[in-house]
Amino acid sequence: MKVLVAVKRVVDYNVKIRVKADKTGVDLANVKMSMNPFDEIAVEEGLRLREAGVATEVVAMSVGPQAAQETLRTALAMGADRGILVKTDETVEPLGVAKLMKAVAEEEKPDLIIVGKQAIDDDSNQTGQMLAALLGWSQGTFASEVNLDGGTAKVTREVDGGLQTIELKMPAVVTTDLRLNEPRYASLPNIMKAKKKPIDEKTPEDLGVDISPRLKTLKVEEPAKREAGVRVESVAELVDKLKNEAGVI
């Protein structure tokens, strides 16, 4: 059984981003980039399936500029078998990524595709659902547990109010939530080994996919700032302020 995972190169989650002065976007110059944290969980889940003897191969793909190759190398260092980079310098929206992934899936014929539930840059939370739709496959989003059994995948999902378990007909698309697993760190020997693993490069044109954007970003601004308020000295003063000044209790 083959597993396809997707990884996105994003601004590292520890970086405090800055909006550009001309409001055209977020400043990415000299900013540390890393693999989207939800995608690390996707890679880890694929590796665990292979280690459990359920999957035989884990293929990692990414859509992005040449530098996204580094993100793929990270996935390979974690243990993925090989990589596919769909190279483009354009900003690709989730619908475009889903179309590119569909084209790759038609060549690779995976039984399961695992992606992060959202990327921490654009926070769209769309690609997995869109990919499942385009392939006509089932979807298990926001997964906190995945169990494969024969032709089905049992997926426990994090939903408002608790957990929901569903059974998916395979092939399926699963999107990861935070608590699906704890991704491993790549060891130094594995980082060295990953340098020799193959990464196949393609372009959207090779795959015959139109990735033209449907949305135009008119401007990007800082959110309204909240001003720090006052310090209170005691619980009694706090309760008094909430009752008589703010009027919220």
């Binding site: 926070d123 949305l215 970003t217 401007k219 601004e221």
Partner: peptide, 11 residues
């Protein structure tokens, strides 16, 4: 976007 650290106006 970016966990609410920036607000994008999109058309």
């Amino acid at each position: 976007i970016y966990a609410g650290n920036a607000m994008a106006t999109v058309q």
